[in-house]
Structure formats: structure tokens, C-alpha cells
Design a binder for these strands. Structure first.
Lengths: 210, 210
DNA sequence: TGTTGTGAAGTATTTCACAGCC
DNA sequence: GGCTGTGAAATACTTCACAACA
């Protein structure tokens, strides 16, 4: 167990969980066929994905929804809450801070940092924007486990290193660069320009083939 | 040529282009080896990726930076500008609207829509937030080719259908649902909750294996 | 009976390795 | 001599198909 799980599988697990969110009542069961229909995949794929983590379906019946939901949460590591530090109080930072789905999933933003003196001291909900001068200190004090870097590329590498130094366990990176951090600290990149480029590529391809 | 190109290749092409952005002067050349070092991949992968679109390197020398940059832009479909409609004037919409990298890459936001009466009429830069009542009409009038859906899941399917109806060529979708649109209209999904879940999964795995 | 869990088969993607060319 | 472009080999991922079993 716990061999290397491909990123594609992880994304599907997240889909499965979301599919179950709007599921009727509780106590019901769902088959791999139904689950596949709600995602964008096949029944065999669903079963294979789940089988990597044990076998918690009942043959002839399917998966019990409550249990499946709980197992998926556990697998994805969201059967607990995460203490998050937000680095960068710009537009993207604000959007994330306000994103209701985050709190709902147990991601608690416990500190906000920005280098802009004009922003330091600003109140955001119950938080106050802090100076990067106290970065490591605050991360340690508040036991921050996960940081979101919503800052320009030029500052991202430095803040990533300082975050790792302060004992952070993972980084969600919006800056369009590859962070160089020790392999024990996972980095998840979100690159909005890349997404748009993938889209314009797909459109261009469609036009060429038309 | 133009067989099916995997998504992974497209993402790498985007990386290669970004790597070249900060390249010294012009007139230089770069080898697949150097390009690979800047991305997160191998020299063979770089050559294979590029070879899908023709052969524009020089054996013994490498790739001419200016030419490669131009070819990559062309391949990705950003050697032109795109007329973009933004649907949803919330935090995420605002963050995207203000994202400097977008204009820089030729994505021009030419219209903004929001269903909230309080927001309709608000001025955003040179744009004014419009009512969805005039959605199709405005998209057609302004020749919008690409829409960004930054609205809740409950409204996304409807707006996607209306956008397709109005002749839009592609959709960047921030709503956490699978849009059901004709295959000729590519959809690129960005799911922030999924990214965070992928991160917490990676951390949990790292801890399990430790 | 109906549906899971899983080896085996089939595809897709990546890496290797080297001929071909600058 | 050095580096690309590309078939062939290796690896990774998905789908098939069926035994196991509630």
C-alpha cells in the first residue's frame, strides 16, 4: 500500500468526493458505474482508483456512501483541519481568503502577510495583514502547516525557502515559477496563464482540424 | 501533423515559453538540455515535444531563441489577441481582470457580466459590469471568442450553454462542475479546492511514508 | 444476481540511443 | 564535435474481463 499514486488518480478522488456531496440523505449505496457517470470516467477506473487504498466496497451492492465519503476525506487528508498562512494580500490572495469552499473543507487561514507597507495592519475578517519581517516567527508560533504563495515570481523562491525553514509542510504556489524546495515539502502549482494558454491551444487545434 | 497532443505536452510548451521570457538579449541559441534544466523535464522530452510541430532546431547548435519563442507562441495560439468575456464580477473575477500577465499575453477583457443588481453598472477600468440579460447580444456584438466563468456551480451550466449559443469558441471554467457542452468548444477547468486537496493528499502521503 | 477487486491486455507517454546533419 | 530528430524500448496508465463473493 501507499505506492506512488499518480496525480490523475488524486484528481479523480477529489471528483468522487464532490460527486457524493450532493447525494440523497445517508445510508444509501452507490456503484462504481454511477460514480463514473458523475465524474468523467469509467467504472473500471473508479474501482481501480479506490482499490489502491484498500477494498471498501461490497460485492453485489456497491459502496456505502457514508463510508466512502469518510474514506475519501481521510485519503485526501481533509478529515482534519489545516492551518494555512496566506502570503500576498493582493487580488488573488483576497479571492482565496474569501473563498467559502476553503473554510468548508477545513482550511483555516490563520495569518496573512504582505510586503506592501500600505497593506500591513489592514484588517481582513479576524486577521490583520502582517509584515514579512515576522514571517518565520509567526508561522512557528501559530503552527502553520501550509502556505499559499500569492505573490510575484520574483519573491516566491525566497518566501518558499523561509516557509520551509519555518517548518511548513506544503506549499500552494500561484507564482509562475518552479520552486526549488526539498522533496519532503510538496508543492502544488496553480498557473493561471498556463490554463489560458492550454485553452487557446485547444481552440487553435480545433480550428486547424476543422 | 496535428495528431492529438497530450495535455502534459501543452503544459510543458507553456513552460518552455516562460523559460525563454527571461532570456538574455536576442540572437542566442539554447539547447534542449538547457531548456530541460529550466523546466522540470529531460532533454529528450523537450525534443519530442517540439518535434510534434515540425523540426525547427539546428543540429549541433540548438534552437534559436527568437524563432523558438515565435513558434511556441504560434503553437499555443497566443500569436494573436483574444477577446475575452468575464462572467462573474466577484473576488475571483476581479483578481483575473486585474492580472497583469493576462493583458501582456494578449487576452483582452472586453465585457464583464454579473447577475447581482448591486454590481451592474459598476465601472471596472474601462469596462462596466453588465446584466446577464444582454449576455448573448453583447457577446455577439463584441465578437467575444472566449469566456471565463467565475461564478457559482449552480449558474455555470446555464451560462456555458448561452455562451456556446452565442458563438464562443472556448471556456475557462472556475466553477467546480463538469460543463456539458459540444465537443467543438474546449473547456479548461480550474478547480482551486481540488488543488488544495491534491496538496493535502501529498502531505499526508509524505507523512505516511516517513 | 449484481457488483467489486484485480491480474492481464491494451494504450499512451516517456526515455533511450543513435543516425543524420550543422 | 555537438546536438537534433526519431524509431525502438521501457514505463506508466487505462480498460478489459472474469473469478470471488455479499
Amino acid at each position: 500500500m501507499t505506492r506512488k499514486i499518480p496525480q490523475s488518480t488524486v484528481r479523480r478522488l477529489s471528483h468522487y468526493l464532490r460527486s457524493l456531496e450532493g447525494f440523497e440523505g445517508s445510508g444509501g449505496t452507490i456503484s462504481s458505474e454511477e460514480l463514473a457517470a458523475r465524474g468523467q470516467t469509467t467504472a473500471a477506473q473508479v474501482r481501480k482508483d479506490l482499490s489502491h487504498f484498500g477494498s471498501f466496497g461490497k460485492r453485489g451492492l456497491g459502496y456505502q456512501v457514508d463510508e466512502l465519503r469518510a474514506r475519501l476525506r481521510q485519503i485526501l487528508g481533509i478529515d482534519r483541519s489545516w492551518r494555512v498562512g496566506l502570503v500576498g494580500a493582493g487580488r488573488i490572495g483576497l479571492a482565496l481568503f474569501d473563498y467559502p469552499a476553503f473554510q468548508a473543507r477545513g482550511y483555516d487561514c490563520v495569518a496573512i502577510f504582505d510586503a506592501d507597507p500600505a497593506k500591513i495592519g489592514e484588517a481582513w475578517g479576524e486577521q490583520t495583514v502582517r509584515s514579512p519581517d515576522v514571517f518565520e516567527e509567526v508561522l512557528r508560533e501559530l503552527d502553520v502547516e501550509l502556505v499559499i504563495l500569492a505573490i510575484p515570481a520574483s519573491a516566491a523562491q525566497e518566501m518558499a525557502e523561509r516557509a520551509v525553514e519555518a517548518g511548513v509542510k506544503g506549499i500552494l504556489n500561484f507564482a509562475p515559477i518552479r520552486l526549488n524546495v526539498p522533496p519532503k515539502v510538496p508543492v502544488q502549482d496553480v498557473n493561471l496563464v498556463m490554463e489560458l494558454e492550454a485553452l487557446s491551444f485547444a481552440i487553435s487545434q480545433a480550428e486547424r482540424n476543422a
